[in-house]
Design a protein around this nucleic acid. Structure first.
Lengths: 380, 380
DNA sequence: TCCGAAATCCAAAGCGGTTTGAGCGTCCGC
DNA sequence: GCGGACGCTCAAACCGCTTTGGATTTCGGA
């Protein structure tokens, strides 16, 4: 239970002390040798200013009890001496960690990699703006719960973000028990009202995408979905099926697949399907990465995307996979994950600032963008 | 200079207090209402045990002055009560942040996205194992230096990792001035001896890749490189040129490109080159992502990779872009970035544990793997 | 002129750990 | 039988900041 077994192996304190001393002595002389200024603390700063620590602290933190003149004097001296309050001390004193935690279990960091990063990048921007740190914990799946408990017990973060909610999700219950504020990226079925979340409209996006294909005359449409134990994928499938049902069509299980959204998944699936007896004329794909695979398969079969085979994909607007231009390569439903990250962070910070606030959510609508990869269904 | 301008707008302390009190009162009752146990601190734990804080702390931290029996008793009680030391307090007392910083400027997080994430995932695993936190700071390019200074001044992290060193790099100088331990992922030209780093052998990998193509009879080889102000890209280019030079060939500038390694970059470049008067018969590409673009272009032109056109790429072993199987899709030079992340983290932790140690480096060799995308140069 | 409010500032008490230096039995060797 | 080493434990200092609860000064208004 205690943190790290190897601590027991630590050398006896006496020994450690002597080592530490000799070391810090060494580095100190080195520092001064390089003309480095030792970083200053509040006490020293206040002595320089002939003020109390209280006043200096208040001046720097913008409390009203300090005269404008004093505040200015303090600010200038702090600036000159390069003072910045020690994070740990401040956190300890205020009781706020000034950090947000992101726990990524192996199943996520092996699977939705780029999407996750993009989200992180967005959230990180928001954190920076508000003086919060982002702390990321990479764990084995089995240790995920433990990671959250650690965060709560050791007060490592003031809140966390739940990534990739599953259809059967439980993390939110744990977090409520731990009293750890959180925001869900995605939605937790059955907890839409009681949790704060930000999500795109997966169902309607895929419904509209399917409609587009149906309007173009496609009736055999393959769905290459993400793993359907994930909430987002389940919703997308529902959108797909709803659109078909509206036209009186029943989905063909042979045309529906689900897996981690890798490139080979797209390629291999497409190849198989195209070789089948009754091949699809269109593909609806859950990720650009897999869609690229589909395009590769189509090319390998000597077919042309947009003419012989139509492809619609969801585009998370990943920065290294731009699908832009006047006419984007892929027809897609697009929703920026990075933006979602920014907003999720904002929402979480708001909740932390006012924990009594009601759960809030943000529903992003994906745009449907027609690109080069769709066209009328070829005549049989 | 002071942290956040908006702090000035904070309500007067009195007011804040009353708010905070009412809030914590509320959440407390709620917590107890849910049967939550308030997280316990060292003082309470030691009282439960009828021991001093000193003894309990030592028992938990594995110091030898505690009897085995007492240690066991302490451990069990801590376990039972779910005690874990408050991170902030511990950090303050020990003076160690127990965290590693990763600063990612916009130029990185927009450009080498997936590679960065993969590295992070590897490093994160190592940190977790050693009880370290990973803190990620996303900043505008102009604020990068400021971010490092903040980390040093506020003691937010015990060390940092330098990502994506440029040919003209200066961050290491800043970090030395700040006395902040660091490890470079990549190499800093001119500072190979004085900094700790971990890198793959970019030059020789690309030299071997080029040799492979030359051996297959290709003489017009296009190089689709990353941005060459980055050290890794400069080295790769050198490897390419060296291989050509060894065979008495001079590189054709018309066949060499450099850009952010996106998918469209690969596709567009390949299309252009293939349409030129004297098109290349082979492509050497710096990233799987761009290589996929090249493959798309090749397909669009009605050509077959490995038969009509050869493609060799560097493969960072990104988890969502597997290039495996008995015969991988792409012939590649492969080196796991995730592994590099693990190793970099290990190295950094070692340096932090013993700051007087000499700079150390780790040179990873990329393997050359022959896949489906290469073949003999077509007869003209 | 005097008084209470407002404006400033301060000493000291936390926050929750780690580490110091000392205290007190016990046991061993001489 | 005695001095000293050892094993175990503790009270208190400290890390660097925020926040409390005054204390002091200033100043407008009666």
């Amino acid at each position: 239970m205690s943190a790290h077994p190897d601590l027991v192996k630590r050398p006896a304190p006496k020994l450690m002390l002597s080592i530490q001393q000799s070391l810090s002595g060494g580095s100190l002389s080195k520092r001064f040798g390089q003309g480095m200024s030792k970083s200053i603390n509040l006490k020293e700063l206040s002595q320089q200013l002939n003020l109390s620590q209280t006043t200096v602290s208040r001046a720097l933190n913008g409390y009203p009890e300090v005269s404008a003149e004093t505040r200015k004097r303090v600010a200038e001296m702090a600036d000159k001496l390069g003072y910045a309050p020690n994070s740990q001390a401040r956190r300890l004193a205020t009781g706020r960690a000034m950090a947000i935690g992101h726990v990524i279990p192996r199943s996520i960091h092996e699977m939705m990699n780029p999407i996750f990063l993009e989200f992180i990048a967005g959230a990180g921007e928001t954190y920076s703006e508000h003086g919060y740190d982002m702390i990321i914990t990479v764990v084995e799946d089995a240790q995920e719960e433990g990671a959250y408990r650690e965060i709560a017990r050791r007060k490592k973060a003031d809140g966390v973000i739940i990534h990739g909610p599953a259809v059967k999700e439980t993390r939110h219950l744990l977090l409520k028990e731990l009293n750890l504020p959180f925001v869900v990226h995605g939605r937790i079925p059955g907890a839409e009202e009681t949790t704060s979340w930000i999500d795109m409209n997966n169902r309607s996006a895929f419904q509209r995408a399917t409609d587009l294909l149906l309007d173009l005359g496609h009736t055999r449409i393959a769905l290459l979905n993400g793993l359907e134990h994930m909430d987002f994928a389940a919703r997308r499938r529902r959108g797909f099926e709803d659109a078909l049902a509206t036209r009186g069509l029943t989905p063909d299980p042979a045309l529906m697949r689900r897996a981690d959204m890798t490139e080979p998944y797209g390629c291999d699936s497409a190849l198989e399907l195209l070789e089948s007896d009754n091949p699809p004329t269109a593909f609806l794909v859950s990720s650009m990465i897999s869609a690229i695979g589909v395009a590769r398969a189509v090319g390998q079969r000597g077919l042309r995307p947009g003419t012989d085979v139509s492809i619609v994909t969801h585009d998370d607007a990943l920065s290294f996979l731009p699908n832009s231009g006047a006419v984007p390569i892929f027809t897609c439903t697009r929703s920026s994950v990075r933006y979602a990250g920014q907003k999720a962070a904002e929402l979480l910070l708001k909740i932390i600032a006012d924990p009594s606030s009601k759960p809030e959510c943000l529903h992003l609508d994906a745009e449907l963008i027609v690109g080069q990869s769709t066209g009328p269904a070829p005549a049989r």
